[in-house]
């Protein structure tokens, strides 16, 4: 999937600090690899209602150190297959941050937005401009744009299509 414009608009979910990959996808689901199974168990470690209520295009926000813990890529994949298009946090755990971009989900650091925005607000993310708009509050928040090659991952749908592109050249 190639996004024409790197603009995403959606309803926001909000969680706290240190949301670990065990919260997002507990280890008991670790032999599951099918998208629908991952989606159905997304956030099973802390919010059993999430998987049923999340909609395609929603945006996921959390506090400090999002994605703490295990390297399991099934965690961001579960978010992706559940419909989440962008994740925003005050800060990220290292492997989770890379995993998000590698599977085509932008992971953005924007503490002020997380601080001021409430669950359910509609927000718009402009990845190229580096701006998130909260329509409910009428406010803009700037974030540091990821490096060019990572934006290319997002444009192409992740690290694998990016590599395929490179190898074909």
């Amino acid at each position: 999937m190639v996004a024409d414009k790197l603009i995403y608009s959606g309803r926001l979910w909000k969680f706290g600090d240190n949301i670990s990959t065990d919260h997002i996808l507990p280890s008991r689901f670790m032999t599951e690899v099918e998208p629908h199974e991952l989606a159905a168990n997304c956030m099973a470690g802390c919010d059993p209602k999430f998987a049923a209520q999340v909609r395609f295009g929603d945006i996921f926000a959390a506090g400090e150190n999002l994605g703490y813990g295990s390297s399991r890529e099934q965690a961001p994949q579960a978010l992706k297959y559940a419909g989440i298009r962008v994740v925003i946090a005050k800060s990220f755990a290292r492997i989770f941050y890379r995993n998000c971009f590698n599977i085509g989900i932008p992971a953005l650091i924007c503490p002020q937005l997380v601080e001021e925005t409430s669950e359910g607000d509609r927000v718009e993310v402009d990845l190229e401009k580096g701006v998130i708009t909260n329509h409910a509050l009428g406010r803009n928040y700037e974030f540091t744009k990821p490096p060019e090659f990572m934006l290319e991952y997002i444009q192409l749908g992740g690290l694998i299509p990016y590599l395929e592109n490179q190898m074909g050249k």
Partner: peptide, 24 residues
């Protein structure tokens, strides 16, 4: 695996990565 960092005991730069990155 995230705990790959433990192999730094052997004087190497050891770090954990995800599955897609491992494929690359």
């Amino acid at each position: 695996d995230s705990h790959t960092v433990g192999l730094g005991t052997f004087g190497c730069l050891a770090t954990g990565i995800g599955s897609t990155e491992m494929a690359a």
